[in-house]
Simulated scan of single mutants.
Amino acid sequence: MLNAAPEQRTTEALIDWFAARGRVRYAAATLPRMLWRLGCTFAASDSIGGVWAGQQALAGSVAPATAEPAAPPTSLPDWLSDGRRRRIIELVRKGVDPRHKGPVTSEVVVQQLPTMAAEMQTVGATEADLLTLLPLVGVKVDPVSGVLRIVEAPDGGRRM
């Protein structure tokens, strides 16, 4: 988005772009929420209604395809206490969001653990940080749906 013309950064144009590139057609209400979560901003424009702008910092954090992935974390922060890890495992085992009866995602975990979310915010941790730590807790994230699942141990038993 940083180098695209304003006409290519409208909500409609981005919906078409994602449909062409990722074979996913986002709804007009869904795409703005996703872009806001990524840190993009929307600015009104007289000629075309409004355009999206990405953050320069976000563009710098998008690694090229040939870059090596960052090393996974090896320790857990204080905001991810033993009790919270047990609660996350419990939520994932149930597999259903208690409030909305949908699948358990990282967003659900943050909603269900508001004190953890507050501590995360205090130290500047994000939901993305939580996602990088979940494998250390024994939880994996489905790369397509974002649904959380318990990691199976190599011997067929469940990890805890």
Results as ranks from 00 to 15, higher is better:
17 W>G: 12
17 W>F: 15
17 W>M: 15
17 W>H: 14
18 F>G: 01
18 F>V: 06
18 F>N: 05
18 F>Q: 02
19 A>R: 09
20 A>N: 08
20 A>S: 11
20 A>M: 04
20 A>K: 10
20 A>E: 06
20 A>Y: 06
21 R>D: 12
21 R>L: 05
21 R>N: 07
22 G>N: 11
22 G>T: 07
22 G>F: 07
22 G>L: 13
23 R>T: 14
23 R>A: 10
23 R>I: 14
23 R>F: 11
23 R>S: 02
23 R>Y: 04
23 R>K: 09
23 R>V: 01
23 R>N: 11
24 V>G: 05
24 V>D: 01
24 V>A: 00
24 V>L: 01
25 R>E: 14
25 R>C: 12
25 R>A: 15
26 Y>D: 03
26 Y>I: 15
26 Y>T: 08
27 A>P: 01
27 A>C: 09
27 A>M: 10
27 A>Q: 14
27 A>S: 13
27 A>V: 08
27 A>I: 11
28 A>G: 07
28 A>D: 03
28 A>M: 10
29 A>W: 14
29 A>Q: 11
29 A>Y: 06
29 A>F: 13
30 T>Y: 07
30 T>L: 15
30 T>F: 10
31 L>H: 12
31 L>F: 06
31 L>V: 09
32 P>N: 08
32 P>R: 10
32 P>Y: 04
32 P>I: 06
32 P>L: 07
33 R>C: 15
33 R>Y: 08
33 R>K: 09
33 R>P: 04
34 M>G: 14
34 M>H: 10
34 M>Q: 13
34 M>I: 12
34 M>S: 12
34 M>F: 14
35 L>K: 02
35 L>M: 12
35 L>N: 01
35 L>C: 09
35 L>P: 00
36 W>N: 05
36 W>G: 09
36 W>Q: 04
36 W>D: 06
36 W>T: 15
36 W>F: 12
36 W>C: 14
36 W>A: 14
37 R>C: 10
37 R>N: 10
38 L>S: 00
38 L>Q: 09
38 L>C: 10
38 L>H: 07
38 L>Y: 00
39 G>C: 07
39 G>R: 03
39 G>P: 00
39 G>V: 02
39 G>F: 02
40 C>P: 00
40 C>S: 02
40 C>H: 03
40 C>V: 05
40 C>E: 02
41 T>F: 04
41 T>Y: 08
41 T>I: 09
41 T>L: 07
41 T>W: 00
41 T>N: 06
42 F>A: 05
42 F>E: 01
42 F>V: 06
42 F>G: 00
42 F>N: 01
42 F>Y: 03
42 F>R: 05
43 A>Q: 06
43 A>K: 06
43 A>T: 10
43 A>L: 14
43 A>H: 02
43 A>R: 05
43 A>E: 07
44 A>I: 03
44 A>V: 00
44 A>E: 04
44 A>N: 02
45 S>Q: 14
45 S>Y: 05
45 S>M: 13
45 S>V: 11
45 S>N: 15
46 D>G: 10
46 D>T: 08
46 D>S: 11
46 D>I: 08
46 D>E: 06
46 D>M: 14
47 S>Q: 12
47 S>K: 09
48 I>L: 13
48 I>H: 12
48 I>N: 13
48 I>R: 08
48 I>F: 04
